[in-house]
Amino acid sequence: MDNSGQAGNASQWRDALFKISTLGSAIFILGLLAFMVLVLVIYAWPSITKFGFKFLVSTEWNPVVGEFGALTTIVGTLVSAALAIMIAVPLAIGVAFFLTELAPLPLRPVFGTAIELLAAVPSIIYGMWGLFTLAPLMGDYVEPWLEEHFGFIPLFSGPPMGIGMLTAGIVLAIMILPFISSVLRDVFKMTPQVLKESAYGLGATTSEVLWHVVIPYGRRGAVGGIFLGLGRALGETMAVTFVIGNAHELSWSLFSPANTIASTLANEFTEASDDLYLSALVELGLVLFLITFVVLGVAEWWLQKSAPKGKGA
């Protein structure tokens, strides 16, 4: 009896250990996030107190005289991500619809797997391709052509250099295309067959089924997935840094070199010579963290709200 009593005690003790270690690890994630924000705020503090709100609206970025403003990089981050979404979403709708409705049945899983594998390719590879393959093509052919035909729009005027906002947006778009496509494919797949067949039975064409049945049915999931893609595009470093040109300037032209928060950090962080410079860079990181946190948080909340009951997030 002694024996079983001891075993019982050991068991209880182990149960307690099990609960504490798993709970502790879960809380560790919360603590880590909070600690991360705290550390970033502490490191950014000299810059926060020196520049205040002006940091967010000033375009001045001059390490030599110690003047730092984040506006060019914030605008660059938002514009490059917006370009990426505008290019990637229509293509992704096409890809997803092709994968769920148009492609020959035996090929669907093959294409689907290919897309999912491409979503796993590291972003530095997209960056390499952007720098060595896409940028020269953009500079030699695409941008001169755009300027010739659409040059009257300020967005498409200016010297075609190949390296700049437009190229960065395209590389980002290609990078998030597989991710958004596979999310949309999963969403489109969830449309009940009966709904589609009823529409076809009423004489609807394939495109009408897509437009009036499949897309409205999956709208919530699709919007959530696109927001997740946007969150990734905002925080992406390597795919952008190679091709954006790293210039702290605001320009109407999409051809001119620009900067995002992530590319500025990648290029300048190890070179930051004094404390204020470093502090300003950390504040940029904090701003990026907050922007992506809000975007991803909205996406997550939206997806959880719209998730069918019984299925987790």
Binding site: M36, L40, Y43, L228, G231, R232, L234, G235, E236, T237, A262, L265, A266, F269, L281, V282, G285, L286, L288, F289, T292, F293, L296
Partner: peptide, 9 residues
């Protein structure tokens, strides 16, 4: 999906 560069900082 948090930006990995911020984790680096």
């Amino acid at each position: 999906s948090a930006p990995s560069i911020v984790i680096g900082i």
